[in-house]
Simulated assay, not measured.
Amino acid sequence: MYQHLNLQGLPFGLPAGKVVCVGRNYLDHIKELNNDVPAEPLLFLKPATSLCSVTEPVVIPTHLGACHNELEVAVLIGQTLTRATPALATAAIAGVGLALDLTLRDVQDKLKSDGHPWERAKAFDKACPVSAFTPANEVADLQDLTFTLTVNGEVKQQGNTSMMMRDIQSLLVAISEVFTLEPGDIVLTGTPKGVGPLQPQDTLTLNMSPWFNIETRVVGA
Rank of each mutant, 00 (worst) to 15 (best):
F12S: 05
F12Q: 00
F12T: 04
G13I: 01
G13V: 04
G13F: 02
G13K: 04
L14F: 03
L14K: 06
P15K: 11
K18V: 15
K18N: 15
K18Q: 15
V20G: 09
V20L: 11
V20P: 08
C21L: 06
C21A: 11
C21K: 08
V22S: 11
V22T: 09
N25E: 07
L27P: 12
D28Q: 13
H29V: 07
H29G: 00
K31G: 12
E32W: 12
L33R: 15
N34P: 03
V37N: 12
P38A: 11
P38V: 07
P38F: 12
A39K: 15
E40C: 08
P41R: 00
L42P: 10
L42V: 14
L42H: 12
F44W: 13
L45C: 07
L45W: 08
K46V: 10
K46C: 10
A48Y: 00
S50V: 01
S50G: 04
S50T: 02
L51P: 07
C52I: 12
V54H: 08
V54M: 09
T55L: 15
P57T: 02
V58M: 07
I60A: 00
I60D: 04
I60S: 00
P61M: 02
P61V: 01
P61H: 01
T62V: 09
G65T: 00
G65N: 01
C67V: 03
C67H: 04
H68Q: 09
N69Q: 10
N69E: 03
L71R: 12
Q79C: 05
Q79F: 06
T80R: 15
R83C: 14
A84D: 09
A84C: 06
T85F: 08
T85I: 05
P86N: 02
A87Q: 15
A89Q: 10
A91N: 09
A92L: 05
A92R: 09
I93Y: 13
I93N: 08
V96H: 04
G97P: 02
G97K: 06
G97I: 06
L98I: 04
L98M: 12
L98Q: 13
A99C: 13
A99W: 13
L100Q: 06
L100W: 05
L100N: 01
D101W: 06
T103V: 03
L104C: 01
R105F: 00
V107Q: 03
V107K: 02
Q108M: 13
Q108F: 07
D109Y: 11
L111S: 14
D114P: 12
D114Q: 15
D114F: 15
G115H: 14
G115E: 14
H116F: 13
H116C: 12
P117D: 11
P117S: 10
W118C: 10
E119G: 07
A121H: 03
K122I: 10
A123I: 01
F124G: 01
K126Y: 13
K126A: 14
A127S: 10
P129W: 00
P129V: 02
A132F: 14
